[in-house]
Design a protein around this nucleic acid. Structure first.
Lengths: 352, 352
DNA sequence: CTGAAAGCGCTTACAG
DNA sequence: CTGAAAGCGCTTACAG
C-alpha cells in the first residue's frame, strides 16, 4: 500500500522532468545528459541518441533559468522603443514598428530572445537589464524628441552596459543609422530631374536630430552642385510629425514663398504636407512634387503615392544585432551605415 | 606583497556583488538581505535601510536568473505575432503593431517583462516557452490567414500551456476579441443615417475569420432591421488586404452591381477600396460612402479621412494580460469582449 | 568517452 | 525579528 511519502514523491514527479530523470531513464549520468543535449561532440552518437529518446519520452526540456544562472549568459537581448510621453501606441511613427519587427527577427535569427518594452517617461524608464541579468545587451530605438529618455539611456551606456542604438541623438553613442547624406542627395536629384526648380527641405535639424541634419546636408550638397541655393523650412519638433507637415506648408504659403518641390525629413511629415497642399488646392505632382524619407507603408496608399527614400531595414536590424554582439564579445565593430534606395512613385513624377 | 590568490580574489570581486557581499557590508546574514530587498514586512525598517544602503554602495542588483530558478516563476510573458509567410515587417497590418505596443505596455504595467517574437513558418514556429521556463505564459496575436501557425498554437494550447489569443480562428481557444457584432451594427447604421441606401459588406468570412463573420453578422442584423437585404462581396483572403479592397471594387463595378456604400471588414481593405473607387472616378463620400474597422492611424491621413470602428486597444491589451494571469492562477476569467466606438470622419459623411 | 562533485545566486521553510 | 541550511536545475572543470 502506498504511503504518504510515496504519494508525495509521485505527485512531485508529475511536475517536471529534470536532467536527473532523463539520466535515470537513459541509464547514464546527469552530466552526460547535459553534454548530449548541448550537442557536445565529445559524447558518442549512440549515447546521444539514447539520451534524446529518454528526454522525449519524459517530455523534458532544459530549464533555461538554471542554464543562465550557471553560465552567466542569458541569450536575451532587450529592445527598448522610446516613445513620446503619453503618446498612444497607435499614433507612434510606423517606421519604428517596422524597425522593431525587423530587429526582433534579427535577434531570433541570431539565436536569442527579444525582450521588448516601450518607454516614455520617468515612470517606466529603465535600461539596466544587465544589472539583474535579464538580458546580455540592449538595443534602443525610437523618437529623438524625448530628451529625458535619451538622457537616461546615455547614463546606461556610460555605466558600461552593452548597448547600441538607432540614430541616437548623442554623437558619442554606439549607433547604426541610415546613409542619410546619400538619401538627401538622391531626394534633391530626384526633384531636379523631374523638373522641380524650387525645392525646399522641411524638418527640424536641432542637435538632437542628427539624422535630420544629415538628410539636409545631403540635400544641400546636391542642390548646390546643381547651382541651387538650399532652402530649409524649420518647424517646431514638438508637434506631431503629421502636424509639422501641415504647419510647414501653411507657413510657406502664408509667407508667399516660391516653391514647387518638397523634401520632407520623414514620410509622416511628407504625408502631412501632402494633405495640406491638397487642402489648399495645390495639385501633386503637377504643381508641387513631394519626396519623403523612411519608406513607411502608408506612403504607398495615399493618392498620389509618395516618392520616398527607404533604408534597408532588414539590414539595419542585422547590423544593430551584429554590432551589439561584437560589443559583447569585446571586438567592437564599426559597421553602422545602412544603405538607402529611392522608391520612385507618383508624388514626384512630373515630366521635366 | 599581494600573492596570486589575493589578486584573483580581488579581480573576481570586481565582477558582480552578490547578496553575500551585501550581507557582509551591512553586517547581517544573507537571508536577511534577501528578505529586506524583497520587501518582506518581517524585517525591521532599520535593518532594511542598512541593507539598502549597502546594496547601493556595492551597486548590487538581484540576479533574476537565480530568483527564477529558485521560485519557478519568471514574471515573463511571451508575445507571439503571427505573420504571413515571407511578409516584410513593414507590410504587416499596422493594427497588429498597435495591439502589440499596447500589450507590451500592459505587460509592463502588470510587473512583467515581454518576450516578443514574429513567427511565420515552420522554420520559426515555437510557442513552447513554458517548457524551458523562458516565460510563464503566452499571448498570441496576428493574421488568421496563417493556418499552419495557428495549428501549431492550437497544439501549444492543448499541451496545457497558459495561453490566450486575440481573435483566434479556433472557437475552442482562450481568446479576447472586439465586440464585432456591435461594430458591424454601428457601421450599417452609420451608412444608413448618411443616406447610403445600397451598402455592401466586403471581406471574407471563412471559418478561420471568426471576427470578420461577426462583423458581417452585426452588419446584416442592422440592415435587416432597417428593411434592407444584406449583401456581401467575398474576396480571396490570400491577397493582401489592400489588394482585396481593390479587387472587391473592381468586381462590383465589372458586374454592374448597384452600390453607394461600403463596409469593409478592416481598414486596410477599406483603404484599398477607396483607392480603387477614386481610380475609377467615383467620388468619396458623394457617390460612395466607406466605413472600415480597426482604427489604424493611416485612415486618418487619407483623403477623405476614413470613417471606422475602433476597438479600445489599451483595454484589449489589459484584458489579454488579465485573462492570461487568471489562467495562470487557476481562476479562469471570462471577460473577453472589447468595446468598440465609431470614429466618424469624412469618408461616410454625406447629407441624407 | 563518461561520471562524481562543485557551484552559479538566490528564496524559504525551520529553528531560535 | 534574524540566521543557518537546503535546494532550485543546470554546466563544467577534474579525474578516470
Amino acid at each position: 500500500m502506498a504511503n504518504e511519502a510515496d504519494q508525495l514523491k509521485r505527485s512531485t514527479r508529475r511536475t517536471r522532468a529534470t536532467s536527473f530523470d532523463v539520466a535515470e531513464l537513459a541509464g547514464v549520468s546527469q552530466s552526460t545528459v547535459s553534454r548530449a543535449l548541448a550537442g557536445d561532440p565529445v559524447v558518442s552518437e549512440l549515447t546521444r541518441e539514447k539520451v534524446k529518446r529518454a528526454a522525449e519520452e519524459l517530455n523534458y526540456s532544459i530549464d533555461q533559468n538554471a542554464t543562465r544562472l550557471r553560465t552567466g549568459r542569458t541569450d536575451v537581448i532587450a529592445v527598448v522603443v522610446i516613445c513620446r510621453p503619453g503618446e498612444l501606441k497607435g499614433d507612434m511613427n510606423p517606421f519604428y514598428y517596422s524597425l522593431l519587427g525587423n530587429i526582433c527577427s534579427a535577434i531570433s535569427a541570431a539565436g536569442c530572445d527579444a525582450l521588448t518594452s516601450f518607454q516614455d517617461s520617468a515612470a517606466n524608464l529603465n535600461g539596466y537589464y544587465e544589472r539583474n541579468r535579464r538580458a546580455d545587451g540592449l538595443i534602443v530605438i525610437g523618437t529623438a524628441e524625448n530628451t529625458e529618455a535619451w538622457a537616461h539611456f546615455r547614463e546606461v551606456a556610460e555605466s558600461g552596459a552593452n548597448m547600441v542604438c538607432w540614430g541616437a541623438p548623442y554623437q558619442d553613442q554606439n549607433w547604426v543609422r541610415s546613409d542619410n547624406v546619400a538619401g538627401g542627395e538622391i531626394a534633391a536629384r530626384t526633384l531636379l530631374e523631374n523638373g522641380y526648380q524650387n525645392s525646399v527641405y522641411i524638418g527640424s535639424v536641432t542637435s538632437l536630430q542628427r539624422q535630420y541634419a544629415e538628410r539636409f546636408e545631403g540635400f544641400s550638397r546636391a542642390m548646390r552642385s546643381a547651382g541651387h541655393t538650399p532652402v530649409m523650412v524649420q518647424i517646431d519638433p514638438s508637434l506631431s510629425r503629421i502636424e509639422q507637415g501641415h504647419e510647414a506648408v501653411r507657413k510657406m504659403i502664408d509667407t508667399g514663398m516660391k516653391f514647387d518641390g518638397i523634401f520632407a525629413a520623414c514620410d509622416q511629415i511628407a504625408l502631412g504636407a501632402m494633405q495640406e497642399l491638397q487642402a489648399q488646392g495645390l495639385s501633386i505632382p503637377d504643381q508641387v512634387g513631394v519626396v519623403g524619407f523612411d519608406g513607411i507603408n502608408a506612403g504607398e496608399h495615399v493618392v498620389p503615392p509618395l516618392t520616398t527614400i527607404e533604408p534597408d531595414l532588414p539590414l539595419a536590424a542585422e547590423l544593430l544585432v551584429k554590432r551589439l554582439k561584437a560589443m559583447m564579445a569585446g571586438t567592437p565593430s564599426d559597421e553602422w551605415l545602412v544603405p538607402v534606395r529611392l522608391l520612385a512613385r507618383g508624388s514626384a513624377m512630373r515630366a521635366a
